[in-house]
Write a protein that binds this DNA or RNA. Sequence first.
DNA 1: AAAGTCCCCAACCGCTGCATT
DNA 2: TAATGCAGCGGTTGGGGACTT
Length: 310
Amino acid sequence: MGRAPCCDKATVKRGPWSPEEDAMLKAYIEERGTGNNWIALPHKIGLKRCGKSCRLRWLNYLRPNIKHGDFTPEEDSTICKLYISIGSRWSIIAAQLPGRTDNDVKNYWNTKLKKRLLGGRRKDRGTGTQQHRQGELDGANNDGEQQPLSASAMERIQLCMQLQEMQNPLSSISNPLHLWQPSSHHQMAATAHSNSNSSRSSSFDVTVAAEQGQSSSLNDQHLGGQQQLETRATADGLASPSSAGNSNIVTIEAELQELIYSAAATTTVTQQGDVDWWSYDQGKSPVNCWDFTPETSSVLQDYAAEVYDM
DNA sequence: AAAGTCCCCAACCGCTGCATT
DNA sequence: TAATGCAGCGGTTGGGGACTT
């Protein structure tokens, strides 16, 4: 039996909210709260709206202390760094930006920030068709031996390079990102803890480890150790090495993922709630997500040079 | 001034995880 | 344990304003 729809789509109103509807919803919630039941809320208020729509309207627009308008450079920096670290987990990213909603952050990233940072497009290198080239990049075969690099993973790799370049004072001169300085507030727990051992670090330490930590709390029974790490990394679009590949890109991917796995295996991040999102298990190696070791940096540089015009 | 195109963002859609029964 | 219902999340869409031709 399928799930019953949350509302009757034939009778609920859709589309933009009127000022009157906003006022009714705002007044009711401010006086009585949501009652932890969004589905029932519109009926109580007398709104012909779906409960989900009410919830979205309240959270993204009517809720107190919502910040509208331009994002600050500090907010830009935070979004960028967190996107590299954890990907498109907009609710977590937004939680680090007081007054911003996940929808806001998502829209801002997709429409402005991403274009500003990743504005350059991969060019057709002229050897073969673009489709062929894309197929090579994606590991496009049907034997299941190699997973494609997701758009998110590619973006994050490129952003890593941007930040790495930013960290290098010599190269940052020509980089418009040089105005971004790491913000002490937004370096999360990563910079609050110094590296406690000699494990390698890369942005992906936090990426994979964060995902491992979060999924650990949810799925400890299902997967464990390296198997889980590999599952998470592959699901995120980070390719497993292909035994059949001969191209440089495959070699670089293999090197990159080896770095990712070796670092992730020694690092854990756990999610502990709104105030302290990130804390590290004792005995593990916290890392700064933009603190690359020379070998990591070298591999990333090679990779980016291969894939992008960098 | 009109038509076409681009861009932004509010809102919707569908999925997932959790709580409850 | 399975079924159900809900909140929450990320991806996507489409209306409309801004910009270009």
